[in-house]
Write a protein that binds this DNA or RNA. Sequence first.
DNA 1: AAGTGGTCTAGACCACTAA
DNA 2: TAGTGGTCTAGACCACTTC
Lengths: 269, 269
Amino acid sequence: MQNQKPGRRKGVTLYAEIRDTLSGELAEGRYPVGSRFPTEQELCARFGTGRHTVREALRGLEEMGLISRQPGSGTVVLAQTHPRFFTYRIESLASLSQYAAETRFDTCHEGVVILHERLAEMIRAKPGERWLRIAGLRRIASSNAPICWTEIFIAEPYIGVREHMRTSAKSPGQAPCYQAIVATYDVRIAEVERRITAVAMPADVAAMLGAAPGSPAILERRTYIDSRGEMFEVSLSLHAGDSFSYTARLVSEPHATHNKARLNNAPHS
Amino acid sequence: MQNQKPGRRKGVTLYAEIRDTLSGELAEGRYPVGSRFPTEQELCARFGTGRHTVREALRGLEEMGLISRQPGSGTVVLAQTHPRFFTYRIESLASLSQYAAETRFDTCHEGVVILHERLAEMIRAKPGERWLRIAGLRRIASSNAPICWTEIFIAEPYIGVREHMRTSAKSPGQAPCYQAIVATYDVRIAEVERRITAVAMPADVAAMLGAAPGSPAILERRTYIDSRGEMFEVSLSLHAGDSFSYTARLVSEPHATHNKARLNNAPHS
DNA sequence: AAGTGGTCTAGACCACTAA
DNA sequence: TAGTGGTCTAGACCACTTC
């Protein structure tokens, strides 16, 4: 069973056959994790095909996360079966807020604060650091109905956004802070951490939101992290419990079967 | 400026250069969305390269979601810039529960119910349907401390899991229901919807969880959906607000720059 | 019938790694 | 130095869509 070159099944490409054969052998445990995978030359000889075809098969295995190829060195086995991930995927950070553009942010307080113990713990920074704090109420633009109380903290290097946001924005409270920061400074958002907890509604916020003090509320904390791993913005939002729900759809990633993106039926003309 | 074949910059491959050139032209709006992209043959002529090289470039553009290729038909433009997604990715559903394996589920009630109006609305099914309901308390295995009150609903076709779970599992309450269903029937989990809301702790559950009635609590609903789009399990969990937090890290997907998976430094001995 | 993208071959050179 | 994977060429056939 070395050189198998049977009558090709119709409609199945050669490289797909090779890929599936190898993937099957991996699943059987023929190549232990961490060991070296056969070289391209060996596979060419074994399957009696050109190198391009073998490479196409290996590309598939690599995409599945089964092997890893190192130029000059060789190919090593990463896993024996294709891990199936579940992913939650959003196209832009704007969709983190289900309320789209029809909201308005009204600033109540704005100023640089020096973090005291409790606040530092809340936003996971060090006590004594200087952060810009912007606190206010987010409302539905049309009806003025309050949505949530939000406090935004911006790290010291970016405190200057304050000016840019006041001047540049068409109307204040429209563009999110992180957007202004990314636009103004040379920062990229690499990661957003989102944390949701249930708390009792504080009396002062309750009054503004028109909710009962002590009623169940959602505290949402978002931490924005740049490509160097540094936090540059943290936001805390307090929602009345009966007006907020967080929903995420985790979708299973495509199975081992190589399916080309058949997403769209050519929207031309 | 038709046929550009300049001195190749060192360390930059030809196909990468072609890819980036085309991607730049797309960004400039040279090829409108929905229009036809140049043919492989045209690109070969323009860049003076072999077809394989052009195809490698196009493969990159396709992976970025900029173009879509149809055999026999041609290539159409999907977008002018590479959308950068944010994703939350988990390797297995088990990690949806941060409490790993060290918990135990103690069933309190178990039986088939006919959905009344309110319950049907809660789990988004139709009133009058028959579902298996399993209700109980999840505890920390070692200390017996209660974690949450959980009600699991299983659609009629899979009610039989009940038997399998009692007999097969090593100790009852260990394997999650969805796992038992997937193992027993020919079902695949295609999607999990997770919804989190804040509610006031009901008195009866409060007693079991050792929380104050009316205190803030988290209601988590999970809906398991199979590959045909049918719900087959819904679970409702009630956590005391001070003992639950939901955290998700949304990570930005790799940028346009083609970076090979450099994840792992070859773990071979 | 002409043109498209998908597959495949046979060969070549390169930069790199490992012995 | 030998071997590896990465790139690239020139040519070929196919199934398919479009005209």
